[in-house]
Computed example of a mutant assay.
Amino acid sequence: MENFQYVNPTKLIFGRNQVNDSLAGEVEAYGTRVLLVYGGGSIKKNGLYELVLEQLNLISNVQIVELSGVEPNPRLSTVNKGIQLIKENQLDFILAVGGGSVIDCAKAISVGAHYDGDVWDFVTGKAAPSSSIPLGTILTMAATGSEMNGNSVITNWDERDKRAFSSIHTYPKFSILDPQNTFSIPADQTVYGIVDLMSHVLEQYFHVSENAPVQERFGESILKTTIETAPKLLESPESYAYREVIMLNATFALNNMLSMGVKTDWATHMIEHAVSAVHDIPHGGGLAILFPHWMELVSETKPERVAQLGIRVFELDPANKNTRELAYETIQKLKEFWKTIGAPTKLSDYGIDNKEIDLMVKRSIVNKTIGNYVPLGENEVRQILERAL
């Protein structure tokens, strides 16, 4: 295990009716001039928008400015709109109501509002945030874990580039997680969230550090619980019991607890970011397609962890099978599970062919290689993309 320090400053407020019980007091502790950030309008259809306004208006002298229409792959142009609204109206708090895309956009706005340069500098690593506008969230989709981490993924559509950055300054001050607010999520979005949370676990499960049984067993428990619960949830989408399990799983999958003391991978996410930067597909859909092909490639040289996953999570019988056979069977089980719940299986499901594969490879390779479990160069990334077509 590697040496590590762990800090997570986000206050998690979980359970029924927590918007009613907690929102006004939590916001008022940080400010009264609020930028309300949300997506395409689903919160207006399910009543959450009205509830949020009602609670915010309990704050004395509150001022609310809205930024709506955040894209599923949030764009730099939208981030810049939010920064402009903050500065023009001298706002002192950001409330993000939505899923990971809305929260990621709000995070970039929060640090960009305190920066005189281009906020894209933070995304590309040319600069690092030193302060931010305080941010709170109300989660409406279980997927990214953005409600309890400092990560943000932003798309520069003009450059057809999509990248992630992280900072202690982009952790939400609080996040309200009421599973009832996920009841109206469409089935395909629920599936994408399930794939995303499982992929987050896998990116950390395939680490390169020694002696990390706690981290591995914790990740396996999240995967097993998700595999058990997901089909039931899709059959009963308004089940509070199933929604709360998936919601908490998604939070634990990426609040940095699984990465304590280990060097993680993240190559598949970087490849998917490149694909969705060029083709604007759903992130979870892209991961469902790409992750099994990444596992196939790395199993050619390091099948041991893949085989372990199969034995412990998919309960494969190791008798009379070698490690590579177990790894292959594990990958087939993962493919089968994701296909069964309705996830896509190939890039052509989104109309993607090999015409822009060179650009996707280029956008994937931020450094000379990506990933740690098996470092990948351009040739390996190309193989994964070609297999995924």
Rank of each mutant, 00 (worst) to 15 (best):
M295N: 11
L177T: 01
S131W: 12
I331P: 00
T190G: 07
P129I: 02
V262L: 04
D280P: 00
I370W: 11
L51Y: 06
I194K: 08
G219P: 02
N17K: 13
A277S: 13
S175E: 11
G41F: 11
W120D: 07
E336D: 13
N149D: 15
R312A: 13
H279Y: 15
V278M: 09
K335S: 04
D161P: 00
H200K: 09
A24G: 04
N20L: 12
Y171T: 05
L359F: 10
L223P: 01
A230G: 04
L95I: 14
T32S: 15
F218P: 00
D349A: 10
R217W: 06
A277W: 00
P282E: 11
L347E: 11
G193R: 05
A327H: 11
V262N: 00
D280W: 00
G219I: 06
P129M: 03
H114W: 05
I352L: 06
N372P: 05
Q84D: 10
S259C: 12
P129C: 09
L91T: 06
L359E: 15
R33K: 15
G286I: 05
P318G: 14
F183P: 07
E28M: 13
A127N: 15
T78G: 02
F165E: 03
Q18N: 14
L359W: 12
F183E: 04
S199T: 10
Q332T: 09
I83W: 00
E159L: 06
V70N: 05
N379Y: 08
T137V: 10
V34T: 08
